[in-house]
């Protein structure tokens, strides 16, 4: 879309912010993968595949996702200064 390329080296803070945006984008992908893992337990005759185990796993995953999301949101911060130029990159 945009033909103009930004500077190669960014200020440390901006760089950090951009990586946090990357993280924010990747987080749902991680979430989808983690949430889909219990499906692999289907059909195994393992007695451990009980509802309680799955429940523990899923809630732990949930808490981790919430925590990660909170950390990322914190780092993304309210400074919208470079938001304009970031756009959808």
């Amino acid at each position: 879309m945009k033909s103009k390329s930004g500077p190669v080296f960014l200020e440390r803070r901006t760089y950090r912010r951009r990586r946090m945006i990357d993280a924010a984008r990747l987080l749902p992908v991680l979430g989808i993968i983690l949430v889909s893992i219990p499906l692999l337990w289907n059909g195994t005759p393992d007695p451990h595949t009980r509802t309680t185990y799955a429940m523990f796993y899923l809630f732990v995953v949930w808490i981790i996702l919430v925590a990660l999301s909170a950390i990322i949101s914190r780092y993304l911060g309210p400074n919208e200064s470079d938001e304009q130029s970031l756009g959808d990159r």
């Binding site: 924010a24 949930w62 999301s69």
Partner: peptide
């Protein structure tokens, strides 16, 4: 939950 944590998208 997945939609919310993927809010940036």
């Amino acid at each position: 939950t997945l939609v919310m944590i993927g809010w940036w998208w």
